[in-house]
Every structure is written in C-alpha cells, then in structure tokens.
C-alpha cells in the first residue's frame, strides 16, 4: 500500500517523464503544444494547504523550465495557476461543499466537473506561459490561437489519462 505522499511523488515523476520525453518531441506543429505535467498540481488533494501547493507548483515549473530552457516561464505559469486553484475549486464546488472523501478526479466528481476545473486552470496556465514566452503582444492573435489549441490538447490528454487511471483501478 503506497501512501499519499508516495503516490504524489510517483505521479510527479511519471508526468515529468511523459512531458520531456514524449510530449516535447511530439511535434504536432507550432499550434498544438500540450503541457500534461500540470495535472500533477491539479491532482493534489482538494484540502491540501494552498501555500504548499503553490511552492510545489513553483518547483514543478522550474524543473520543466530546466528541460525546456525557458528560464522561469513555466514556473511563473504554474505559480499563477496554483494561486487561482482555491478560487476555481470554490467556484465549481458541487452544492456548496466537497465531500471529505472527494478527490479532484473524474472518478470522484464526474466528467463535467473535471472538464470545467481543468479547462479553466489549464487555460490560465497556458495563457501566462505562451504570452511570457512570446514576450510581446505583436503576434497577439497567433499566440491566442496557440493558447486555445494547446489548452484543448492538454485537457484532452488529461481526460484520456483519467480513463487510463480509472481502468487500472477497477
């Protein structure tokens, strides 16, 4: 039996490995650029300390930056996402409160909840990420296009990964 800490460390390593070995080299053109690794932060327990989540997000982003040579861009996006997470969780809370046993997964809270929760946060993350990377507003609409297409692909991969994890458990 692996405890929660072990599970999260394993998840961090697996998502990081998928990100830098598969997704970085997928090369589906410049508009589709999925960043699945954010799922590690999204899947941290609902009731975990929000400051801790933010610090974890910072280091996760920094690790990905190291592999992508983006120097703080992913870290900034992850920290922003972690800052917004409590508010987004509150907004989409089912009938006011989450069960004590509720987990931020499709299995626990359903597909519609998962889509709105991950959709919002992934979009916010990608928004900061791609605009900081472009570092200008001169190509505003093409950057916005990249953000929308990449967010959609990331959310798609998240849903897919949830199905895989669900199947593994049953």
């Amino acid at each position: 039996m692996i405890n929660d800490l072990g599970k999260n460390i394993l998840r961090f390593l697996v998502f990081l490995l998928i990100q830098v070995s598969i997704l970085k080299h997928l090369d589906l053109g410049r508009f589709i650029n999925p960043f699945l690794y954010v799922l590690f932060i999204l899947m941290l327990p609902i009731r975990s300390n929000k400051a801790l989540v933010m610090v974890l997000a910072f280091f996760t982003g920094l690790t990905v930056d190291m592999f992508y040579n983006t120097m703080g861009v992913n870290a900034a996006a992850c920290v922003f996402m972690a800052y917004c997470r409590p508010l987004v969780l509150r907004t989409y809370a089912p009938k006011g409160e989450y069960d004590t046993s509720a987990k931020p997964t499709m299995q626990s809270l359903g597909l519609p909840w998962l889509l709105s929760y991950t959709g919002t946060l992934v979009f916010l993350h990608h928004f900061v990420l791609f605009f900081l990377e472009a570092f200008s507003l001169s190509s505003f609409f093409s950057t916005l296009g990249i953000i929308i297409m990449s967010s959609a692909s990331t959310v798609g991969l998240i849903v897919l990964s949830q199905y895989i994890m669900q199947r593994r458990k049953t």
Partner: peptide, 9 residues
C-alpha cells in the same frame, strides 16, 4: 514566487 520567476526570466 512570481518575483523570483521573473528574476530568472
């Protein structure tokens, strides 16, 4: 933390 990120950037 954002300040630190921008410093790296």
């Amino acid at each position: 933390l954002e300040f630190l990120c921008f410093y790296f950037l």
